[in-house]
Amino acid sequence: MTHVRYDILRMVRNRAFLALTLALPLVLFLSVASGQRHATHDGVGFPLYFMTAMAVYGAMFAVISPGARIARDRASGWTRQMRITPLRIRADFAAKVLTAYLLALPTLALLYLAGAALGVHLGATQWLKLTGLLLVGLVPLVVLGLALGYLLPVDALTPALGGIVVLLALLGGVYGFQLATSGPMFDVMKALPSYWLVQAGKAAIAGGGWPAEAWIVVAAWTIVLIPVAAVVYRRSTSRI
């Protein structure tokens, strides 16, 4: 418990990081969506689409960010000091997952408030369904953050995390347009969790939830990434 508490405290104390993570998607949403309150996109109102997209964008950054903290701790050499204590891999991963979601939740909440202010109307179950799908769809991103944090040196990590999120966002349709709606490119997009994250808004409105394909994509990414994260965790004890 102490481990979790200090992990959260260390994240919260990193003020500049916290402010940027929370503010960036919010500012993007307000500046783009306020001029297109009455437009529609991909079958739903643009504010809802873009609110979901920016929530996904912000939350992806939030949940992948523990990777940066992990890489910094490794670079400092203290990770090796932790590794010779009885701290278990599960407890360490659990703490990182918890901090990831603790940062994602206010990111979502701020976007929801901004969306409501621009006229997004959803029923209580729709809000809940949207949130639930987003939290589930973020799981592979959380694990990816862990794996990269234990794998990459700290100076490579910032561009790697940023680049991956931007790429996933672009292919997932986060920026307000889709690169393709059919063909091989569309197949690639549909194989990414970010695509289904963006689709969560539409799914929540339609009431039907995700298609089976979405659940399979999210589960497959998670199942592949967890052992990768465990292996790089165990290997990350060499002297840096």
């Binding site: 418990m1 481990h3 104390r13 910094r72 400092s76 090796r80 000091q81 204590t85």
Partner: peptide
């Protein structure tokens, strides 16, 4: 218990907090 040659204490923590954290594992 080990004292390694390298390892700068974790950032965003105070000394007492870091030592408490290490104690909590044992």
């Amino acid at each position: 218990g080990g004292m390694l040659q390298t390892g700068s204490p974790l950032d965003h923590m105070k000394v007492r907090e870091l030592v408490s954290l290490m104690a909590s594992y044992y």
